[in-house]
C-alpha cells in the first residue's frame, strides 16, 4: 500500500505531461483522433456477455434465429463503435471567458457547443467532470435545429480562494448512442480565472497621500458646474446666470438651476503594513472599500506595497484594482 502511495504521484505527473502534449491548452477544442479515447463501457461488456450467452443458448438449442439475433447484436455492437466515435468527434467546444468572482462564491461558466457544419452536431447526454475526479454532471445536448447554431450550457465554477488560476483540465464523456461505448476526452481550456478576495465590510478609509495632501477627508460633494442637478428656490446672491428664466416666466417663482460635480473627490486606498496572517483580512477590507468607492463614484487610487494604481473611477478601474488584490503576494 505504501509503495502504491509513493508511485501514484509519479504516474499522475506522467499522465499530466503526456496529456498536455497530446491535448494542448486552447480556447476552443474540436475533437479529433488525437483527443478522443474510446473503450467499451461496463454496459458494453455486459452486452457482449449477453451475446455470448445467446450464442451458447442458440447453439445448445440448435436455434438458428437465436444465433442470428446474437450475430445481429454483435453487428450492432460493432456499428456503435463508429456511431459513438463520430458523434463525439462532432463536438466542437469552447468556453467563454470566465468572469472574475470573489473567493467562496461561484462564477458562471458558459460552455458552448458549436455545430461542426450546418447539418450535424453531437447529440446525447454529455458528462462533464473535473479531470481525475469521479463525480460528474450531465447535460443533454439538444438535437440541432436550424437557427439554433450553438448551444450554450450554463455551469459554474467554485472559487475557493483568492488568486489567479488556470482553468483546470476537464473530462467530457459521452455514452451516445446506446451506451455501449464510453467516448471521453480530457480538455484543457486556456482560460484564466481571477478570484478576488472576499469583501469584508468596514469603514471607508481614503488617504490623501498623492501629490498634494492638505485635506484629509475630502469626502465632500462640491457644488460644481458640469451636471445639471435640479432647481432650487432662488436665494439672494445666486448668480443671475443660473436663474431659470423659463420657469420664472411660467410659475412666477424665482428658482435657480443648480449643478454639481463629483470630480473633486479623490483619495488613495492603502494596504496597511500587516503580518502575513492578517494580510488576507486586510485585502478583503480593501476589496470592500474598492466596491464602496466605485458605487459612490469616488475617484481613488490604490497603493499595494510598491504597486501603485493611479486614481480613476469606473468599472474597469475597479476590476484592475481587485485583480491587483487577487495577485498580491500569492504563495
Amino acid at each position: 500500500m505504501r509503495l502504491k502511495g509513493s508511485i501514484k504521484p509519479h504516474i499522475d505527473g506522467f499522465v499530466k505531461r503526456w496529456l498536455s502534449q497530446r491535448i494542448p491548452p486552447a480556447n476552443r477544442h474540436r475533437l479529433t483522433m488525437r483527443s478522443i479515447f474510446i473503450l467499451p463501457s461496463r454496459f458494453g461488456w455486459m452486452f457482449l456477455l449477453l451475446c455470448v450467452g445467446l450464442f451458447i443458448l442458440g447453439t445448445n438449442y440448435q436455434n438458428n434465429i437465436m444465433l442470428l439475433l446474437c450475430y445481429l447484436l454483435v453487428a450492432i455492437f460493432l456499428i456503435n463503435l463508429h456511431a459513438s466515435y463520430w458523434n463525439f468527434a462532432r463536438l466542437d467546444i469552447s468556453i467563454d471567458p470566465i468572469a472574475s468572482g470573489y473567493a467562496g462564491e461561484q462564477s458562471p461558466l458558459q460552455l458552448r457547443i458549436h455545430p461542426t457544419n450546418a447539418k450535424q452536431a453531437a447529440v446525447g447526454k454529455l458528462q462533464i467532470a473535473n479531470f481525475n475526479q469521479p463525480q460528474s454532471l450531465s447535460i443533454d445536448l439538444i438535437p440541432q435545429q436550424p437557427g439554433n447554431p450553438t448551444q450554450v450550457c450554463q455551469l459554474s465554477v467554485d472559487l475557493p480562494k483568492r488568486g489567479v488560476f488556470q482553468f483546470p483540465r476537464i473530462t467530457l464523456s459521452s455514452f451516445y448512442p446506446l451506451g455501449l461505448y464510453r467516448c471521453w476526452t480530457h480538455l484543457d481550456f486556456d482560460r484564466e480565472i481571477v478570484v478576488y478576495p472576499t469583501p469584508l465590510p468596514c469603514t471607508l478609509q481614503l488617504h490623501q497621500t498623492g501629490v498634494d495632501n492638505e485635506d484629509a477627508s475630502g469626502l465632500t460633494t462640491v457644488v460644481g458646474h458640469d451636471d445639471f442637478a435640479g432647481l432650487t428656490p432662488y436665494v439672494v446672491g445666486d448668480s443671475l446666470n443660473r436663474i431659470a428664466w423659463k420657469q420664472v416666466a411660467k410659475q412666477q417663482n424665482w428658482v435657480s438651476k443648480s449643478f454639481d460635480s463629483h470630480h473633486a473627490v479623490t483619495g488613495w486606498l492603502v494596504l496597511p503594513t500587516v503580518s502575513t496572517e492578517q494580510l488576507e483580512t486586510a485585502l478583503s477590507k480593501l476589496a470592500f472599500q474598492i466596491n464602496q468607492c466605485t458605487r459612490e463614484g469616488i475617484q481613488f487610487g490604490l497603493l499595494l506595497g510598491r504597486q501603485r494604481i493611479a486614481p480613476a473611477s469606473g468599472d474597469q478601474h475597479r476590476h484592475a484594482c481587485l485583480r491587483a488584490l487577487a495577485e498580491f503576494r500569492l504563495h
Partner: peptide
C-alpha cells in the same frame, strides 16, 4: 456576418 459576430462574442 454571423460568424464574425459570434467570434467576437465567443473568442474572449
Amino acid at each position: 456576418i454571423l460568424r464574425l459576430v459570434s467570434y467576437s462574442r465567443e473568442s474572449g
